[in-house]
Design a protein around this nucleic acid. Structure first.
Lengths: 238, 238
DNA sequence: ACCTGAACACCGTTCAAGT
DNA sequence: ACCTGAACACCGTTCAAGT
């Protein structure tokens, strides 16, 4: 009983489980799959089309371009993100931002895409909502929270983008060594401050830096009022 | 008299002013030229080779890869950056960071490269030195200044990367409108904080946001001590 | 309306062979 | 040592033509 062509009269089966109809959701889901197994760099229109057993042109019926596709992938990855229940608002805020960063870390290259596209998917909005709720709980004035949430997300996204890229490249250690050497070798006369702080400039683990960075941002956001007056919209729209 | 073969016995001239010898500096200078006139996206190994009248393989004698080339271009652009003379240290710090951002703004795409590569050229080091001097002048504790300078440069670089990309794309307005609509259309019940702050989330000009962001970072850096103890090197090297 | 083959106009990087 | 032609293994996007 090696064959199973019983109730499906004619149609090439096996290999592919009956080519499913194309849909935006199906395309995004397949894209996520490729990214998880091979990284974002492999998620190209051509490769994706191949996976879906069609030509690249077909995808443009559902996705405007590669950037939009990457935005959709990102939002999909944010699905499991949720703030913890117990604890101090600061701890929960740091926890939520850390899981956001961890998510981006796990998928090198997506963080860079996130910096370049303006995410606006459902899961991203939920993340923003959670962050605003925590800042509110911490008594941060609304205007500062509104601008601050941008700062917090930008910081974590940019950090993930940097870190992810560096981990990816094979010669990270070499680059690092040469930077350390450059800093320590800097002349005391031309660059006194760098020479003085050489060790401190590169001290700390990524986790320590991130934790300090988030605390620094929160302290800054709390302490810095936004300019008063009816500030115009960023696009000068009324 | 269509020919002009007078005092140069044999050698195809005209068109190209006698092909110069390749050198790293020449390659970088040519790359900067292409970037200024056509944008970073056009600075490819192939295009650069064509400009230098050779094949792409020849460039690999002087430049390890495209990322290294972009790093070299960035450093070249930082050459004219200098802190102003007069005024408050805060104003001069903001001024210097603003000219850094303006430089990246003027060349869309380079900011993104700056986030991905660890800059370490001579002009970048001078910028770091200037920032450390200003933070020192402002009485920021050395350990906080050392970590803070990273935060300030990351913030400005990431902001430029975001802004540059968005200005570049033709349908910026459409994306913006749809984001605004999304925010304002967000249900009061599912996303109460977003609904409440919708206007504030998108308020302010890019300049106002940047200025507030820098002030926020400085306040945070001043207020947040770095973890004590002999913190290990970021790479655990002793 | 949805889908597609084929084409247009490109990429980075390597390598064996030359000078 | 430096330079190169040619190749390998790819890209995103468009468009006319089909169903």
């Amino acid at each position: 009983m090696g064959s199973d062509a019983t109730d499906q009269p004619r149609r090439s089966r096996r290999e592919r489980p009956a080519k499913p109809a194309l849909s935006r959701d199906g395309i995004v889901a397949t894209a996520v799959g490729i990214m998880r197994s091979e990284g974002l760099a492999k998620v190209t229109m051509r490769r994706l089309a191949q996976e879906l057993d069609t030509g690249p042109a077909s995808l443009y019926v559902y996705v405007a371009n590669t950037a939009e596709l990457h935005a959709a992938i990102l939002d999909e990855l944010l699905e499991p993100l949720r703030a913890e229940d117990g604890g101090d608002w600061r701890e929960r805020l740091e926890g939520l931002l850390t899981s956001y960063t961890t998510t981006l870390f796990a998928h090198p290259g997506l963080a860079r895409a996130a910096l370049v596209i303006q995410p606006s998917g459902a899961h991203y909005l939920r993340l923003v909502e959670s962050l605003l709720a925590l800042l509110d709980e911490g008594g941060i004035p609304p205007a500062q929270a509104a601008w601050g949430v941008d700062l917090l997300l930008q910081y974590t996204t940019a950090t993930a983008a940097e870190q992810a890229t560096r981990d990816q490249s094979a010669d990270t250690q070499a680059v690092w060594d040469s930077l350390t050497d450059t800093l320590h070798g800097t002349s005391d006369r031309t660059h006194p401050h760098i020479a003085d702080l050489a060790t401190r400039l590169v001290s700390g683990t990524a986790e320590q830096r991130m934790s300090w960075g988030i605390a620094t941002l929160i302290n800054g956001i709390r302490a810095t009022p936004v300019p008063t007056g009816d500030a115009p919209d960023r696009r000068d729209r009324v």
